[in-house]
Design a protein around this nucleic acid. Structure first.
Lengths: 217, 217
DNA sequence: TTAAATATGGACCGAATGGTCCAATATAGA
DNA sequence: TCTATATTGGACCATTCGGTCCATATTTAA
């Protein structure tokens, strides 16, 4: 892929009727749209967009080809739905985790260290779907770029919230520019994850996290 | 792609005879192997491994299919040659740049800021071939991982040299752990480049660079 | 001039690609 | 029960994929 996008409207409202709850009669859907999206997301997450074939997608979702095309429109449309769902779910999960954590700084450290866990694990590191996609597509496809941007902004928002919490608790400098710092944390997160994908070991990852954390406070 | 590697020795000495200078008679090669590698590298760099087709490769290199297969073995072998050449060339270029620069810290800042240039440019950002590949393949292919690791180590070496120079010039703390810092710089570089690919604007990139630089001294 | 060695272009390969289409099936409401 | 509406599985599509192979062209050394 990584070519220019086709010259058509990419508003999947027109092809994906799952937004509308029942409305008309007929045979009901036999699958859970959300589970399908998560299954597809996991496949894209591990293999990238180009690296994922329709066959893999059909296998992991359990759908038939026509169901997938009818419901989601196509590979790219499904992919973008996955990016959106990923963004939404991650943001929610992280904000919950943040609200449960005592310290804003501690929360950020936890999140960064979760990358180190991937380095320790024997399985192949998946990284972050949003940043993987940024790397794969760069700015070659407008619809994808839009979804990636929203993802990055979501992460930035989460970290900004954490930094504000940290400032309130006087964990960080009172007059630090939190907007800039939040971008820095996203960037650092992305860098660390790519190092893990590159094979850097857990110890090295932890020392990078330490340096990042030191630069916050 | 992104599957497991085939169970065969990947020592391209056996398939690529361009190492041997002439030795036997016969029709001489009509193309410059190095130029071919650079043309292929540029294509892989822009589109990734999966995103690059043989057709594109033949077009960008100007080779015929048989010449390419005869000379390099195949798509993956050529790709790995590109990774190696990229590593070598980048290391050399950066070390030269470093030796010409007055300050180790200044050099690192220059390199990080070069990512900001990509954000400013209207063309699609290519990022770093090594980190792009790390992201695309993760640890799914041993031969590729080996090449990626060598690349990361090369970058680390460059930055380590710069940091030592900075320490000699008392630009940074005398008892900083330069090994750790060099990994941190590579990670930061990678993070910044992925932010650029994700569409973050130049100003934001520059502020991230500032924070990274501040954490060094 | 001849033989050996190499380069080259293109035909050809099977498999897989993303995508379309339709007949059969199943369900809900009238 | 009948009809309208959806879902579903699979046949089918042209195209492209990476890769092999061979006949031909070209060059060097003997």
């Amino acid at each position: 892929m990584a070519q220019n996008e086709p010259a058509l409207l990419n508003i999947d409202i027109w092809t994906d009727w799952s937004y509308i709850e029942v409305m008309a009669s007929g045979r009901p859907q036999e699958f859970d749209s959300n589970k399908v999206i998560w299954a597809a997301m996991d496949t894209f997450w591990s293999n990238g967009f180009d690296g994922t074939s329709m066959q893999q997608l059909l296998k992991s979702t359990g759908l038939s080809k026509s169901s997938l095309y009818q419901t989601f429109g196509g590979k790219q449309e499904l992919f973008i739905r996955c990016l959106e769902e990923y963004t939404l779910a991650m943001k929610e999960k992280l904000l919950t985790q943040l609200s449960l954590s005592k310290s804003g700084i501690g929360f950020i450290r936890e999140v960064l260290l979760s990358a180190a866990e991937e380095a320790k694990a024997s399985s192949i590191p998946k990284g972050c779907l949003i940043m993987n996609t940024a790397t794969e597509f760069a700015q070659s496809n407008a619809a994808v770029s839009r979804a990636v941007n929203k993802g990055i902004e979501a992460f930035r928002t989460v970290f900004l919230t954490a930094l504000k919490k940290a400032r309130s608790a006087k964990e960080i400098d009172a007059d630090a520019d939190l907007d800039q710092l939040s971008s820095y944390v996203v960037s650092s997160m992305s860098g660390i994850k790519s190092m893990v994908k590159g094979g850097v070991d857990e110890k090295a990852v932890r020392s990078i996290v330490d340096i990042v954390m030191r630069s916050l406070s």
